[in-house]
Design a protein around this nucleic acid. Structure first.
Lengths: 129, 129
DNA sequence: CCTTGACCTTCCCGTGACTGGAACCCTCAT
DNA sequence: ATGAGGGTTCCAGTCACGGGAAGGTCAAGG
């Protein structure tokens, strides 16, 4: 299979697939004309990576998860630890964003949003209570 | 005032302050020895920028907000539009993260996390329901 | 007067995970 | 022969800085 077909199958852009090869996440074969030849296992790995990325795992997490995936004698505790660490990062981000959202939405509510210059948003940013 | 004092006052790293000058957000004066000389207005702008950044506005948003801040004849509608656009981006991010969190936490709950290789997390990533 | 240490300066590279684009090669149909 | 539509490599850019090197400046102490 050529890279275009794999891109279609996995939903990953060809650029991303090449990038994943460059950083040694996958090692597709090469045809005599220099084209990448993807086996089913490559496609499967790419699907795995795509799914892990949509769950927000970093590339390095993905690398570790992929290694565990291929290791028949893994301990599920290792997988779970990676996932839990990631989850706590996500929760921290959500908390940050929620704080921003709350502040922002209050300010927006307080702003008339008309042609006059008076603006509580700018007042807040300017540090004037 | 030198950059260190300003960094202390505003809580922004000196590196960040230099960067903000480089991209023309602020224009501090220069002393004869080449040191940056910050006026109160510079410090005030930096505080404004710091606050806007903690609310998650991009640098370009900050540039626009700063321009409006300095424009006495602004319309608060312009400020509000920027803030609302930003708010909707934040909400989109929160939604994304929540989806990740929900999926992840279910998977983590289902994973024994012991020495056995069997792992629902990897099963999900591998696409095997 | 000299040194020490804490400042300050510029400059360049690295980050994460790609994306865009240039310049070029391969293949097949017309 | 030519054109369209694949593929290839390589380089630059993204965003908002942070790290670190190499060197100039300043105030205090010996």
């Amino acid at each position: 299979m050529n890279i275009g077909d794999v891109a279609n199958k996995t939903g990953l852009p060809a650029k991303t697939i090449r990038y994943y090869e460059e950083i040694d996440l996958i090692k597709p074969l090469r045809d005599t004309n220099g084209y990448r030849q993807f086996r089913d296992q490559d496609v499967h790995k790419l699907a795995f990576l795509g799914r892990a990325r949509t769950l927000g795992f970093t590339i390095e997490d993905c690398r570790a998860l992929l290694a565990l995936y291929e290791d028949e004698s893994r301990a599920s505790a290792d997988v779970k630890r990676i996932a839990r660490d990631h989850l706590s990062q996500i929760e921290a981000k959500i908390a940050d964003l929620r704080a921003m959202r709350d502040t922002l939405s209050h300010l927006i509510e307080a702003c008339a949003g008309d042609t006059r210059p008076d603006c509580p948003i700018l007042k807040d940013l300017g540090g004037k209570s």
